[in-house]
Amino acid sequence: MNPPDGDDWISVTEASLSAQRLTSWASRPDCGAVVTFCGTARNSSTNGRLIEALEYDTSVELAELRLGQVVAVARAKWPELVAVAIHHRVGLVNLGEPAVVIVVSSPHRQAAYDASRFCIDTVKSFVPMWKREVWEGGSAWSEEAQDLLRLEDL
């Protein structure tokens, strides 16, 4: 997967994510802050089961469309942002692997921290994505689901 020409990098992919690669891409001479967030597959769920893996389902086209809208809203809220990347896995994600990586760079840290937090919170409530928890002998959709927000809610 090659970096885009512009400063937004959106991807929904079955391939492993590299936080290091995205962080390097977002590091620019005019940026004093690069904030990298990794949402990783953990072994416990809200119902106490020992999770062995997560499996994500989506429509790649619709998810990428909405990730692009997340970035656009973040840029409107924090105009000083320079590079913004949001990459999300689909399919099976093993424990410890990142299911989502968000990287935001800006001249100063406050905007980068705030925008990073906005992006992950918004990914969880605005992007069509469904997490299935897989354990020994079974699987079920995550009980942490949230009602899907509309663009005007952001």
Partner: peptide
């Protein structure tokens, strides 16, 4: 398109 409550991230 039918989109149930979401659980990404």
């Amino acid at each position: 398109v039918v989109l149930p409550p979401v659980s990404g991230g």
